[in-house]
Design a protein around this nucleic acid. Structure first.
Lengths: 111, 111
DNA sequence: CAGAATCCAGCACGATACTG
DNA sequence: CAGTATCGTGCTGGATTCTG
């Protein structure tokens, strides 16, 4: 079987599983992506309601990082009051199998 | 689509993705499981070699937690010098699809 | 060989107040 | 409404030494 640890162009060891963890690890990112993937686009405060317990700091930080990775898209409407919509990108959609497995396994192992 | 957030028997909100994250999240667990799933059983010091940079503390801690979850099996031979073998359990094998997706996505997104 | 025991640093994550 | 800006804090993870 393929080893997850490989050598990059600088000769430094890298691991594809670690790579994925770096992009979508942490407490919130996969849950955020799940909602955008399956519930469709959401406004900022809608996201907050979907993520019980998240703070402003974490939500805006995670959204910004995910946008930076190109996994989600931020669309701003110049209106008053302000309106912003977040949606999943094409690249983000490639995470669907992973999201589904995370969901399936958690559900299945539930006691 | 099924919402990942559900209500448990105590009426507390729970999320199956968070659940999975709690079991196999963090920096090392999925990589450890990957090796045990695809490289077969390993001794303690063999595991260390497979995980560049891991410390004694992290390795033994993660192994203990994974064993506590029933995801891996620790087999101790009463010999001198000591010999211990870690292997993946039946329950741990149910994570294979997840491991493969983590690996596949990381490999694919590699620049 | 396979850990356990300490001690410690950094940062992930959180609480709260403020703002265009 | 959709965020910043500060200010914490605890826990994850690391370095090192000791042991059966």
């Amino acid at each position: 079987m393929t080893d997850p640890i490989e050598v990059d162009e600088n000769g430094k060891l890298k691991c594809s599983i670690e790579y994925t963890l770096n992009k979508v690890g942490g407490k919130w990112k996969l849950v955020i992506l799940w909602h955008l993937a399956y519930d469709g686009k959401q406004r900022y405060n809608e996201m907050r309601r979907l993520l019980p317990g998240i703070t402003h700091k974490m939500l805006s930080q995670q959204l910004k990082e995910l946008e930076g990775e190109g996994l989600i898209v931020r669309k701003q409407y110049n209106e008053v009051p302000p309106k912003v919509e977040y949606s999943i990108s094409e690249k983000g959609l490639t995470l669907k199998p992973l999201l589904e497995e995370m969901h399936r396994w958690g559900k299945e192992q539930w006691d």
